[in-house]
């Protein structure tokens, strides 16, 4: 299956993905016409910055059915609504173990980057921040149904967002087991 892969090392923080996302989820689908729409179109992707890593990261959650992040969460900080499949994050239960990011194809490259840099303190705060924001807004990334390529991917001038079969990108194949990752 194709998914949207985030390559944080390429993100320049221009926020083009955010606007493209909002326009793709507007009534008119056109930037100039979407401006006046009520209610204003909502974006499903957020560019956050990680001061510790000194990078910006576009973050977006698909709230997949049977979300793997939810099933691997050892403290049940992540939970999923059975009806809407919206994933929620409870910061009080989160111990910042990062297991969720290891199983999410979108965040795997970020996880690997962080592992390379050796900075463990930044991360999940942003990841889960976005998840909660999307939860509040009641919107989730739908991979732009009806389009060949998600609007954010198309809009990204540096290809920090790509849309590929997971196997096509080196380093994005999900590990079979957790030990494979940590080992």
């Amino acid at each position: 299956m194709k998914d949207l892969i985030i390559r944080p090392e390429r993100c320049l923080g221009c926020r083009s993905c955010e606007i493209a996302c909002a326009v793709a989820h507007s009534k008119s689908k056109s930037l100039f016409s979407a401006l006046g729409e009520q209610p204003a179109p909502k974006k499903r992707i957020y560019v956050d910055c990680s001061p510790n890593l000194e990078i910006s990261i576009p973050i977006t959650c698909r709230h997949c059915e049977d979300a793997p992040c939810v099933s691997v969460c050892p403290t049940k900080a992540l939970s999923q609504d059975e009806v809407t499949s919206i994933v929620s994050h409870n910061p009080d239960r989160c111990v910042d173990c990062w297991t969720c990011s290891m199983v999410c194809p979108r965040f795997l490259p970020l996880y690997r980057l962080i592992r390379v840099i050796g900075c463990w303190t930044s991360s999940m705060a942003y990841n889960r921040g976005v998840i909660s924001r999307q939860t509040d807004a009641g919107v989730k990334c739908d991979l732009c149904q009806g389009r060949d390529i998600p609007a954010c991917v198309e809009a990204c001038p540096t290809h920090a967002l790509v849309f590929y079969e997971l196997e096509e990108i080196p380093g994005t194949k999900l590990p079979e087991t957790t030990s494979e990752l940590t080992g």
């Binding site: 909002a22 930037l31 974006k43 001038p157």
Partner: peptide, 27 residues
Amino acid sequence: PQCSFGQLGVCCRNCNMGPCRIDPFGE
């Protein structure tokens, strides 16, 4: 696709506190 901030004219580079840009959708 071309930069939406540029197309809308809402990016400012006139001082070095920036660059700043305004979210056209108000979020």
